[in-house]
Design a protein around this nucleic acid. Structure first.
Length: 590
DNA sequence: GCCGTTTTCGGCCCGACTGTTTTCAGTCG
């Protein structure tokens, strides 16, 4: 059982306890534990194997440690089963609807007897919800529109979740009898921000044995299909895995085919046809000029001897193209660029010289400034910015001017001990409802770097929201607009804002826009970044780390930037310190 | 349920908004 799965179970316990109206502090204890579990970089099952005590972790006491051990040992939790006997699990779904929390979810179940989204929808449509005490027509309408949105967006896994679920499966598969090669294809290989299912490609003599090996993995809960070359299963996590076993001569063609995207493949096949070739997952074959309206695709693949197929390189070469990085395979002009020899030199992790958003214990971060510094030095950075929250975020004890002054005293001390890296004095300043900033001008002027972002009033209508952000951008001290759309994957939609207008203004003013690397945000998204580049807006990639380990999340930002064709030149925190500072100052005087 | 200690209990983050009320409960970040 992986950490994400453990966290899911603990989350469910907390939700059910909340509906049950249990002791709020007990509920909070479970939620705190979830955060700890999610933040662990080492699988808890390994810690248990190694005999380490889980109670050493923050927010994990004897109780939760026991539950986690039970989960790891048995895959289940008796206490959760008992909760399920008392409360329908579907009430948790209710709480995902806007305006519904545990109390109202429970009331709906108690008084209307609804225990599924469908039943709730029917009751709301019949007007039964609006007449309940504490409810009204508005709430009923919100429930209905919430259900609409909930059922229209299929649930996909975040890339980082898959990165956690996959390695144990891959380890298992690498031990399969006769397996000589294994690769993950699909949107995972293209590093999309969310993943629907996993495409595994395997090479080996005995397809049947490899297929059985997958089916026998302990995390498999259902077998959707198991054939000679293709097997599909569902893991306990809900992740679907499709395994294809291919012959060596087809390896490259199959990898291209199953990596996609579908649109990229269509373009590639068209291009092949222009050259009297036919690309399939089995290889590149001479095209049959006579068989115009023959529908049997499989038959075609076996016609003649393949001209390519063993490697991706030879497949692309067969149609006159260099190898194209998977992140670019989306039919956004990559084939034309490849043909012209103009594929971009995509940014890499090691191009980055500093991380420009992170928090410390001065607001809601877990680690001290000096600990963050050490972690930045370890990652080879020349500089980094400490960007704790401003005072509007009272719940995390954001900084006002007075507290900021005290923080600088600490930064001075830390910096004196560590000449090897430069700390940029910064703050993640809240953009208030009217677009003004949550710190006095005289203090903004004294900061090395002013990062602004939205943490409130997500629901303004587009015109007002856009004006609000534009006004903030026009403040002469602003350097970076952080997580511009505020979206949280699978949880919160982006704010209603004219992103194009914001990017244009940012480009004009020389204000940089942030690509927030946190895998829950990845904000801006790829299409926005492409637009930012077109408009000449500067981009920075930052982690928004709240603990040292999260600095490694930078890879997700880099991968997202690669999907947006960004090169080191497009991202200003690839610049050495002096150059970076000069670029910032340039924007301030502009 | 966790944690820290003034150490086996008592405190645990809280302000603002919304929709529903007519003084507030529930939700949200």
């Amino acid at each position: 059982m992986e950490n994400v799965e453990i966290a899911e179970v603990l989350k469910e316990v907390a939700d059910l306890l909340e509906i049950q109206d249990a002791n709020p502090f007990r509920i909070r204890a479970f939620r705190n534990a979830v955060r700890t579990v999610e933040a662990q970089t080492v699988p808890l099952r390994r810690m248990v194997d190694d005999g380490e005590t889980l109670t050493a972790l923050p927010a994990i006491g004897k109780g939760v440690a026991g539950y986690i051990e039970e989960l790891i040992a048995t895959g289940g939790l008796e206490m959760l089963e008992e909760l399920h006997d008392e409360i329908p699990a579907s009430l948790i779904e209710f709480m995902r609807l806007p305006g519904l929390g545990p109390k109202k979810a429970r009331k709906l179940w108690n008084e209307l007897g609804v225990d599924s989204i469908e039943a709730l929808k029917a009751a709301a449509e019949a007007g039964e919800v609006a007449v309940l005490e504490g409810f009204g027509v508005k709430t009923q309408d919100r429930i209905l529109s919430g259900i609409e949105r909930l059922t229209s967006t299929e649930q996909r896994f975040r890339l980082s979740e898959v990165d956690e679920l996959l390695p144990p499966l891959l380890d298992h598969m690498r031990a399969a009898p006769g397996l000589t090669r294994l690769e993950v294809a699909g949107s995972y290989r293209r590093r999309r921000e969310t993943i629907g299912d996993i495409d595994l490609l395997a090479l080996g003599d005995d397809a049947g044995a490899i297929s059985r090996w997958l089916v026998e993995h302990p995390s498999v809960v259902s077998v959707i299909g198991a054939g000679g070359t293709r097997t599909s299963i569902t893991l306990r996590s809900g992740l679907q895995v499709d395994l294809r076993i291919v012959p060596a001569a087809s390896w490259g063609a199959a990898l291209v085919y199953f990596t996609g995207s579908k649109e990229h493949n269509i373009k590639l096949r068209q291009r092949a046809l222009d050259r009297e070739l036919r690309i399939s997952e089995y290889g590149v074959f001479p095209a049959e000029a006579s068989e115009e309206d023959e529908s049997g695709e499989r038959g075609v693949a076996s016609v003649g001897e393949p001209v390519a197929g063993a490697t991706e390189e030879d497949v692309y070469a067969s149609v006159g193209l260099p190898w194209i990085p998977p992140e670019l395979r989306t039919d956004r002009g990559e084939i034309a660029a490849a043909e012209a020899g103009e594929l971009p030199e995509l940014i890499r992790r090691e191009d980055l010289k500093g991380d420009l958003q992170m928090h410390s214990t001065w607001s809601d971060g877990r680690d001290s400034i000096e600990e963050m510094l050490g972690a930045c030095v370890d990652r080879g950075y020349e500089y980094f910015a400490i960007t704790d929250h401003s005072k509007a975020l009272a719940m995390v004890e954001g900084l006002d001017a007075e507290k900021l002054g005290r923080q600088w005293a600490e930064i001075d001390e830390v910096e004196a001990r560590h000449p090897e890296i430069r700390i940029l004095r910064s703050l993640e300043v809240d953009i208030l409802k009217d677009g003004s900033l949550d710190l006095e001008d005289e203090w903004l002027e004294r900061l090395d770097l002013v990062v602004v972002s939205i943490h409130s009033f997500f629901g303004l209508e587009a015109a007002e929201q856009t004006d609000r952000v534009l006004r903030a951008l026009r403040h002469p001290q602003v350097d970076i607009l952080a997580h511009p759309t505020g979206r949280i994957l699978n949880r919160r939609p982006p704010i209603d804002m004219d992103v194009d207008e914001v990017l244009k203004t940012a480009a004009e003013l020389g204000v940089a826009v942030e690509l927030n690397a946190h895998p829950n945000r990845l904000d801006l998204r790829d299409t926005h970044l492409i637009r930012a580049k077109e408009l000449g807006a500067k981009v920075v990639i930052s982690t928004d780390a709240h603990r040292t380990g999260e600095l490694d999340l930078i890879r997700y930002g880099v991968e997202q930037a690669r999907r947006a064709w960004l090169t080191p030149a497009d991202v200003i925190n690839t610049r050495p310190l002096e150059e970076f500072l000069a670029e910032l100052r340039g924007s301030r005087s502009a």
